[in-house]
Design a protein around this nucleic acid. Structure first.
Lengths: 186, 186
DNA sequence: GTGATTTCTTGATAATTGTCAAGTTTTATT
DNA sequence: AATAAAACTTGACAATTATCAAGAAATCAC
């Protein structure tokens, strides 16, 4: 868990009090493989950090199942549209492996921010980081062939190719399962 | 300018002091059409809000000129990779019309945040908003045909089609200029 | 305003990728 | 371990989109 903070904000280590404050609003939870952690159409009020396991965020477009995010150890996930805009989410979230997570209720987080405004800094740094991640993802999608997209992801997150069903990676990369299979087979 | 704040955080109106503090670090600047506001390869340390005019953020991929962001009145722009990560940017920024902007030095902004940590809240809300914008953009790109992408943008930002050269919109939508032209001609 | 440059359009063709279908392999259940 | 279900692979074909090329239209510079 410490790694998660380390990843996103070195400030944590300058003040162990911060870790304590955050741990106070974090709840440890477990899910089984294939469990649905969040269902589309409902409001998601939690933010999750993974201790172990792997999850995906996805939605349906014209009955096709599209993965938009993978999260493994130390990564975070949530139904981001719902969490930020406080509306029903278009996304669902599924455990792809048995999962141990730390769950943070967004209201608790906002209360903490109100009580200790200096922690907003952490929230901002975190958002800056995931914003950059998203910018990269757009670049990857906007201008690369299927083969290039495959290779980029293989370089960035090789473990996905061992731990996740191909069809989910294919949809994440915006290509058909057949095209994915042909690329993999060289 | 007030509209920019209104767009991103209603909190501003609960406390006019905030506007004042921000205005203290904002500098008014003008650019001529075709001016390069920022060149790739250099570090960008400013964040811009447009009072009037239109700009684009772009980069070169294999000698092709790819637009990744348009900004018009009340919108903001910067070389986001550079600003957040403090490294040389891959992006350049061009004025597509005569431009009046408010420019904020990122260091000044961070100093303001240090002096008044409660303003981090504003930074976080702003990032949340542009994060959601980006999520939508990925959805638009990942799973829509050229025609659909054209229609989505036409609905969301019709003014671009009147004010911006087609080739820039085409690259922004991830399609060739010829395909763009054929879709437009119905 | 005239010529030069850039942008846009249109056609022909080629390349990429998706869809459908059938068979194979892998995984899950009992 | 046997069976059922799900996931993956492969081929044939179709659809989409890019590329190249050439001409038309629009914009820019003097």
């Amino acid at each position: 868990m410490l790694n998660f903070f380390k990843q996103h904000a070195s400030l944590v280590f300058e003040n162990p009090q911060i870790v304590e404050d955050f741990q106070e609003i974090m709840v440890s939870q477990k899910f089984k493989k294939h469990d649905i952690i969040h269902s589309s159409g409902s409001v998601c009020s939690h933010f999750y950090v993974i201790a172990s396991g792997l999850a995906r965020v996805f939605y349906y477009k014209e009955s096709k199942d599209i993965t938009v995010h993978f999260a493994a150890e130390e990564d975070s996930f949530t139904a981001i549209d719902s969490l930020i805009q406080r509306k029903k989410s278009k996304y669902s979230i599924e455990a792809l492996e048995d999962l141990e997570v730390f769950s943070i209720n967004f209201n608790d987080l906002e209360l903490l921010f109100e009580k200790k405004p200096e922690y907003e800094h952490f929230g901002r740094l975190f958002l800056q980081q995931i914003y950059i991640d998203l910018v990269e993802r757009i670049d990857d999608l906007q201008l690369h062939s299927t083969k290039e997209r495959y290779d980029i992801l293989l370089t960035k997150k090789p473990y996905l190719f061992k731990r996740v069903a191909s069809k989910h990676i294919a949809s994440f990369l915006g290509m058909s399962a057949e095209t994915f299979s042909r690329i993999r087979g060289k």
